[in-house]
Simulated scan of single mutants.
Amino acid sequence: MNGSALHKTAADCAEELPGAHLEHPFGPDWEVYKVRGKVFMLLTEVPGRPVVILKADPGEAHALREQYSHITPGYHMNKKHWITLEGGDDVSKKLVEELVTDSYRLVVAHLPKAEQPVDPHTYGTSTRAAR
């Protein structure tokens, strides 16, 4: 998947998530997706190529970086809790959608229960298969 397809796939997935919305708080070069005011995904070409920056469980983030050459620590973010995904041969639509949904669920899980648009423990799990 190339960089423009990566951005489109990630944005399309994010726009389907309950309560998610797009903002541009850092200017036109950054697309920032939030749920209830909390960031779960950033899209930019600032590092010189299209990238998607996502929240990830620290253990899973490490495993993803080991498994995929196109996943690196979060660009301008906490390297333990965020990953950067760029286009490449080993990046599939399914992988992008799973990573976006996982990021969203992690953020939703830290919201007060009354503000959670979905149950973060079950949302999106019925359709998931092993990566």
Score class of each variant (00 low, 15 high):
1 M>I: 15
3 G>T: 11
3 G>C: 14
4 S>C: 08
7 H>V: 01
10 A>T: 04
10 A>L: 00
11 A>K: 09
11 A>Q: 07
11 A>H: 02
19 G>L: 13
19 G>P: 13
20 A>D: 11
20 A>E: 08
20 A>P: 06
21 H>Q: 13
21 H>F: 10
24 H>Q: 08
25 P>R: 12
29 D>F: 03
33 Y>F: 14
33 Y>D: 09
34 K>D: 09
35 V>F: 12
36 R>T: 05
36 R>E: 14
36 R>D: 07
37 G>M: 02
37 G>S: 02
39 V>H: 03
40 F>E: 03
40 F>A: 02
41 M>H: 09
44 T>Q: 02
47 P>Q: 09
48 G>Q: 05
50 P>I: 11
50 P>A: 15
50 P>D: 14
52 V>W: 00
52 V>D: 01
53 I>V: 15
54 L>Q: 05
54 L>H: 05
55 K>P: 06
55 K>S: 07
57 D>N: 12
57 D>A: 06
58 P>V: 08
58 P>Q: 07
61 A>K: 02
62 H>K: 15
62 H>M: 13
62 H>S: 14
63 A>D: 02
65 R>N: 10
67 Q>Y: 01
68 Y>T: 04
69 S>I: 02
69 S>G: 13
69 S>C: 01
72 T>M: 10
73 P>F: 03
74 G>H: 05
75 Y>E: 07
76 H>R: 14
77 M>Y: 13
78 N>Y: 10
79 K>I: 03
80 K>I: 04
80 K>D: 08
80 K>V: 11
80 K>T: 12
82 W>P: 00
83 I>M: 12
85 L>Q: 02
86 E>M: 08
90 D>G: 10
90 D>N: 09
92 S>N: 09
93 K>L: 01
95 L>G: 02
96 V>W: 01
96 V>L: 01
102 D>E: 15
102 D>Y: 03
103 S>C: 05
104 Y>V: 09
105 R>G: 00
106 L>A: 11
106 L>S: 11
107 V>F: 02
108 V>E: 05
110 H>P: 00
110 H>M: 12
114 A>N: 06
114 A>M: 08
115 E>T: 00
116 Q>P: 04
119 D>N: 14
119 D>G: 05
119 D>A: 03
121 H>Y: 14
122 T>F: 09
122 T>V: 13
124 G>A: 07
124 G>S: 09
127 T>N: 09
128 R>N: 10
128 R>F: 04
129 A>D: 13
130 A>Q: 11
130 A>C: 04
